[in-house]
């Protein structure tokens, strides 16, 4: 898997950098960063991405709202979404997945675990 384009939606610069760091294991990948849901939607208008990784708790527009909007947009709804958040409770996890997210990763993230999940999703999405 090469030249993938990831959109990281996270208000914390520390987390954005940490996630970017992990994603750089994908050769030639392009990383686009957004600080909240609104910023992410703007970036999605301008750029095509292969995957969205989003936090839930963010100012302006949270991650769950972003998932809802992306999944209701015919142009964007096929983009896989991974939620990365501090919320570890089962109900939060289920809510995110019900809205259409493909996977859920709890903080603090383990780089290897995150990469495994991303790879599995992208393998599934790959046209056979």
């Amino acid at each position: 898997m090469e030249n993938l384009r990831f959109l990281i939606v996270e208000d914390s610069p520390t987390m954005r950098q940490l996630i970017s760091f992990s994603l750089k294991r994908f050769k030639g990948c392009k990383i686009i960063e957004a600080v909240d849901g609104v910023d992410a939607l703007k970036k999605l208008q301008a750029e095509e991405v292969d995957m969205i990784l989003t936090d839930i708790n963010m100012p302006v527009m949270d991650g769950l709202k972003l998932v809802t909007l992306v999944k209701s947009n015919p142009r964007l709804r096929d983009i896989p979404i991974v939620i990365i958040t501090t919320e570890g409770a089962q109900e939060d996890r289920e809510k995110g997945l019900q809205l259409g997210a493909d996977a859920y990763v709890s903080k603090p993230i383990q780089s290897s675990g995150l990469l495994k999940i991303i790879t599995e999703i992208l393998e599934k999405e790959k046209p056979s």
């Binding site: 914390s12 610069p13 520390t14 987390m15 940490l18 501090t86 903080k107 603090p108």
Partner: peptide, 14 residues
């Protein structure tokens, strides 16, 4: 703020 972020996101403190 960065110290707070590190403690939440990297250590996993609530």
């Amino acid at each position: 703020n960065i110290v707070v972020e590190i403690v939440i996101n990297l250590i996993g403190a609530e």
